[in-house]
Simulated scan of single mutants.
Amino acid sequence: MTDPADSSPSGMRALLDVMARLRDPATGCPWDIVQDFASIAPYTVEEAHEVADVIQRGPDPAALQDELGDLLLQVVYHARMAEERGWFRFEDVAAGVTAKMIRRHPHVFGSAEIATAEAQTEAWEVQKSAERASRAETGVLAGVATALPGLTRAAKLTRRAARIGFDWPDAGAVLDKLDEEVAELRAELPAAEPARLADEVGDLLFVLANLARKLDLDPEGCIHQANAKFERRFGAVETALAAQGRSPADATLEEMEQEWIQAKRRGL
C-alpha cells in the first residue's frame, strides 16, 4: 500500500486504501466497521462547519489544510460504504462532479458567453432547474435539502420563491412583517401553549432569515457573529467579577448588567 503520509498525487489513492483497510470486516477497526451512512452523516456536517469556522477565524493555512483533510475523509468514508454496497465508487463521485462543473460552466468549457458573476449565477440556477426536472423533481422549491441549517434553508427556500416574484418588495416590508409576527407571539404568551409558541417563534425566525437575505447577508453568518459577541462580552463579565474575587453566581443581575455595559463600551 502507498505510504499514507505521501503528499504526491498518489496520496488520494493512499487515503482510499486506508479507508478500505479500516472498513475491512476481518482486520479493520471495530468502530469503523459498524458505521453506516446515518451514523457518519453528523460527522460530515460537523467537519463542514469546522472548515467554515477556521475560515471565519482568519488566515491559518495549516489549520485549513487539516480541516479540509477531515472533510475529504468524510467524502471518502461515504464513498467507501457505497462501494461496499455496489452503488458507486469514489472515482464515480469525482467523475460525476467534474462533469457537472463542466456542464454548469459552458462559458468556460464551451461556446457560451457570460460576462458577469450575476449572469453566471442566473445561468447556474437555470442549469440546476433543468437537472432537477430530469430527476422528476418538480416545483419551485424542489431539491432544497432538508438537512441544511434552519436559517440557511429558510433563506434558500424564499430565494427560490423570489425568482418567480413571490417575495417582499424590500427590507422595510420584511420589518413590517417582523412587527406582525412579534405581535402574534405576544398574543400567545398568556396561554403559554408550547406548540403555539413554537409555531410563532418559528415564524419569527423565518422572517429574520429573510430579512438577512433581503439585506444580502448570510443569516447563519449573522447568528455566528452574535454568538461570538455574546461569548466575548460574557467572558468580560466573568473576568471583571473574578478580579473582585467573585463569580457570576455571586453577583446580582444588575451587577452583571453593569459589567456587560462596560464590555460593550469597550467595543467587545
Rank of each mutant, 00 (worst) to 15 (best):
V201D: 04
L151N: 14
A195H: 10
V182T: 06
V140L: 13
K128P: 00
A209W: 04
E91R: 07
D199L: 07
E181S: 05
R135G: 01
E188R: 15
A112V: 14
G150E: 12
V108R: 15
A145V: 07
P194K: 12
Q120V: 05
L205M: 12
E91Q: 06
E188S: 14
M101A: 09
A209F: 06
A195K: 11
A154I: 01
L185A: 12
I164H: 10
L157E: 10
D203W: 01
E131H: 10
T116V: 09
L151Q: 15
G143N: 09
K177H: 11
R159K: 12
E181I: 06
G139F: 14
A212G: 03
R160M: 10
V144C: 03
F109P: 04
A162E: 06
D170N: 14
R160T: 03
E193L: 11
N210R: 10
A212R: 04
K177F: 06
A115N: 14
W168N: 08
A123K: 08
T146D: 14
V182A: 11
K156N: 10
V207T: 11
A95I: 02
P169N: 10
G165V: 06
A95R: 10
T116K: 10
Q127N: 11
P194T: 09
L175I: 14
P194S: 12
L197G: 09
L197V: 14
D92V: 03
K156V: 09
L141I: 13
S134M: 13
R159T: 09
